[in-house]
């Protein structure tokens, strides 16, 4: 049976302010979905809500993994169940080396039932795998000894997130603007790496403003978010249209959502 991440009529509020107004989205493992939309339309909110960020309050609807409602799960359970998000601005953890962080993370995600204090993946095996993955991403081996995201450039952070995805081998991955801050070559590498990990092994949701990352990861579906709703779904051609033409046609076609989106943007600007 195909594994599925199913989002149904999802309503999400942040600090009491509604952001998502009923999002429906079904991702099957093996599919690539692009999520586009103007700034502030709620794209990252969707990602954070799927990951279980405590500041994102789900006020309605459901998120199901293979038919099981996961809303009551915390982020630990969700990540161990195979859901991953590459963040736009991942947090720095000073004093903790990337390799150390990832060895623990990889062990936990691959052995979801692991109790604290139980054995980690053997160091040799882990090192070998990490070095290999870093090689693919053309990352300096020194990177593994740096503190997690501490003093990383924008591009380094994004690459580090892809590296984490490669090590954790999730079933479902949300990439939140992983292409922004990367130069053309780096985007190419990231795309290759996603393909390498197995675009066909994962259900991927690519949140992006560009179509670069989509070139090598052609979306099966492109969704447009506006004012906290998915207003349109199409194929890869829709992604190209939005990238070259912008959102004017969409705004005109969905005036209600456009108005809601403007209200949200203004509210967040206050």
């Amino acid at each position: 049976m195909v594994e599925t991440l199913k989002i149904t009529d999802l309503h999400v509020a942040v600090e009491g302010k509604p952001i998502l107004h009923g999002v429906n989205l079904t991702i099957n493992r093996g599919e690539t979905h692009a999520l586009m939309g103007p700034n502030g339309s709620g794209k990252s909110t969707l990602g954070n809500a799927v990951m279980g960020h405590p500041s994102y309050e789900v006020t309605g609807g459901s998120i199901e993994l293979n038919g099981e409602n996961i809303l009551a799960w915390d982020a630990t359970q969700r990540s161990r169940a195979g859901i991953f998000m590459a963040f736009q601005r991942p947090m720095a953890i000073p004093g903790v080396k990337m390799a150390e962080f990832l060895r623990h993370a990889t062990t936990n995600v691959r052995n979801p039932d692991r109790k604290e204090g139980e054995e980690l993946i053997p160091m040799r095996q882990f090192r070998k795998e990490l070095t290999e993955k870093m090689g693919q991403l053309r990352m300096d081996p020194e990177f593994a000894r740096r503190y997690v995201n501490d003093g990383f450039s924008g591009g380094e952070m994004k690459r580090a997130e892809i590296l984490q995805m490669a090590m954790l081998r999730p079933k479902f991955a949300i990439l939140d603007e992983t292409d922004s801050g990367l130069d053309v070559d780096a985007v190419k590498l990231a795309s290759e790496s996603i393909a390498e990990i197995g675009g066909d092994q994962m259900g991927i949701l690519i949140i992006t403003h560009h179509d670069k990352l989509l070139e090598r990861n052609a979306p099966d579906f492109t969704h447009v978010m506006l004012g906290g709703k998915l207003v349109e779904t199409g194929g890869v051609e829709l992604a190209h249209e939005l990238y070259t033409e912008g959102y004017d046609r969409i705004r005109a076609a969905y005036p209600e959502a456009a108005a809601a989106g403007e209200a949200m943007t203004e509210a967040s600007a206050v």
Binding site: P54, T76, T107
Partner: peptide, 16 residues
């Protein structure tokens, strides 16, 4: 809290 959440999305329990 954001650091905690970040680590939890990488399979860490809150306590870890």
């Amino acid at each position: 809290d954001h650091q905690l959440f970040y680590a939890m999305t990488r399979g860490y329990t809150r306590k870890e």
